[in-house]
Computed example of a mutant assay.
Amino acid sequence: MAVPIELLQTGPEHVDLVRNLYQFYAYESSDWEQEDIEVDGRFYIHEPHFQRYWASPDWSASLILVDGFIAGFVLVERSELPGIDALELADLFVLKKYRRLGVGRAVARQVLGEGAHDWLLRCHVEDAPALAFCQALVADLPRPVREIPLDDEPALRNYLVTQRLH
């Protein structure tokens, strides 16, 4: 079933909206991240890092719209890992209502196919659905992909998507 999907890059006026959506993302990952909520009933967000999506070059936060309704978000960062000159698809979140419709795959393919630069995709090994999604995604991308070893986070599988098209 084809659904109309749109990526809408956010501006500083959308910080609270993305912060609210991030709470759903944090909730879903809390079982394998072992995160607890703060005393205010919300999951922790490191504000200086979060603000960079609207202040730093090559960082962005986009809303995923399906048929005009907010269906999730995508966070992109410039990798700051030594030796990695790539943008990173840092977080991709799709609300449960819109899963299994191809929304996540379409968004990831669009993002990872954009621009004349390499992309870093990192997937947590304890998040079985996300890891399966990543593995299926990288097997089907129109750009070359290779798994790379990185020592900063042992619980992550790391994929480098290069700009050269097949």
Rank of each mutant, 00 (worst) to 15 (best):
H14Q: 14
D40F: 00
A55W: 02
P149F: 14
A155Q: 13
R100E: 14
L121R: 00
W54F: 08
E114S: 12
F93E: 05
E126T: 07
D85I: 07
A106T: 10
N158F: 10
L137V: 03
R164M: 13
V125S: 09
V18P: 10
R109A: 12
L65G: 06
D127C: 15
V107K: 02
H124R: 00
W119V: 05
Y22N: 13
P57C: 04
L120W: 05
S29V: 13
H117D: 00
S56D: 14
W54P: 01
E33F: 12
W54D: 02
R157C: 08
Y22P: 05
P129E: 08
L89Y: 02
L95A: 09
L81F: 08
L8K: 10
L112T: 03
H124Q: 02
A26G: 11
Y98T: 01
G115S: 11
N20P: 00
D127H: 15
F69S: 12
L101H: 06
A155H: 15
D36W: 09
V18C: 09
I148A: 08
Y98A: 09
E47V: 02
D16N: 11
G115N: 07
P82C: 11
R42M: 11
E147I: 07
G102D: 07
T10P: 14
V94F: 07
D151I: 01
R157L: 09
A55L: 11
G41A: 05
A2T: 13
F50D: 00
L75F: 11
H49W: 11
R146I: 08
V94I: 11
E6N: 10
V74M: 06
R109T: 13
L137S: 02
D151F: 10
W59H: 14
G104W: 03
M1I: 10
E6S: 11
Y53S: 03
L112V: 02
L120N: 00
Q163H: 12
D152E: 12
D151V: 07
A90I: 00
V138W: 00
E88R: 12
L75I: 08
P12D: 09
A86M: 08
Q135Y: 04
A71E: 03
L17M: 09
G41V: 00
D36L: 15
L160Q: 06
D91A: 13
V39I: 11
E33C: 09
N158D: 06
Y53W: 06
V66P: 03
D91S: 13
L17I: 02
K97A: 15
F69V: 12
W54H: 00
Q9P: 15
S60R: 05
G68A: 03
V103I: 06
P142M: 03
V74P: 09
W54I: 04
A130C: 15
R109L: 14
C123Y: 04
A130M: 14
Y98F: 15
Y25E: 06
H14P: 04
V15H: 08
P129I: 03
V66C: 13
L112P: 01
S62V: 01
Y22R: 09
L8R: 14
E114C: 10
P82R: 12
Y98G: 08
V111N: 01
P12L: 12
D151C: 08
V76K: 05
P144M: 11
E6D: 14
L92G: 00
E153W: 12
F73W: 06
D118P: 02
S60P: 06
L17C: 06
L92I: 11
